[in-house]
Design a protein around this nucleic acid. Sequence first.
DNA 1: AACTCTTGCAACCGCATCTCA
DNA 2: TTGAGATGCGGTTGCAAGAGT
Length: 284
Amino acid sequence: MGRAPCCDKANVKKGPWSPEEDAKLKEYIEKHGTTVGNWIALPQRAGLKRCGKSCRLRWLNYLRPNIKHGEFSDDEDRIICSLFHRIGSRWSIIAGQLPGRTDNDIKNYWNTKLKKKLLGNNIISPPSPFLPNLNSQIPSPYDHQYVNTNSFRAFSTTAAGIDPPSLISSGFMHGNYNNQVIFGGGGEASCSSSDGSCSANNQIGENLGFHHQSYLGNHDETQKFFITEANGYDHSKGGIFSHGNPLDYSMEDIKQLISTNHISTNLNFFVDEIKTEPGTTLYY
DNA sequence: AACTCTTGCAACCGCATCTCA
DNA sequence: TTGAGATGCGGTTGCAAGAGT
């Protein structure tokens, strides 16, 4: 049995679109509206020997109005980084925040340029699957592999000369301190300020206790948490490892993780402190 | 000049999700 | 409620162009 193919594979053209095909598709959609209704039937109606899916893709990624091509701006880079850090490779959602950009475009840009750029600068690492997906209630196969062998550290940013506040202010991270718990980095020396290049941010970071402490703001039992993990002390691999949507982890979620040994006791300490001393800067 | 390697990107594929009868 | 078809999505592939040797 198996699923019926979406089109007659033998009679559809594949590969790059010709200008004539583009023109036909564009003309048809402009005539009948963008709410085409039935992509599968479109090629036949428009006189194209293409699969409906191919037509849809061509329209969405290339022909539709107001598509932006070419270089991504620094602002777009920051938005992509910020969102990737928070939600991973949900390209369509990320594209939704960048008018004129398509998910395919952003995906390609990330895979070919941005990822290398950021990894090269030791600024960011891909999301790590180190926490279970609480929505599904089914632990991922990665849970124990990652969680029990790592303490929670938010950043290994010193090698990049960047501290959390600068990441937040530049849009690489969510900037609302009061709605997040940020698990502070381990005992490395903080960003050198001898050249003054990051002294201002350093000062903020030190004030907030980022380098050897953890910072948290107002919170209560209904607060949601944004958890990040750095890759131990290895700066050659260092950077931000994030997991999940900031809204994924409530206090109850975290308690559950602790009770099922999905996260380290470091965090247990944290959560207890959060409960008893809201708004306090914590040391560990 | 010729060849190989690398890069960037358009397009494809298969699976997941949605919609509707 | 169920199942088939349509649509959406993300990973992957293939190819052209450029860079390097």
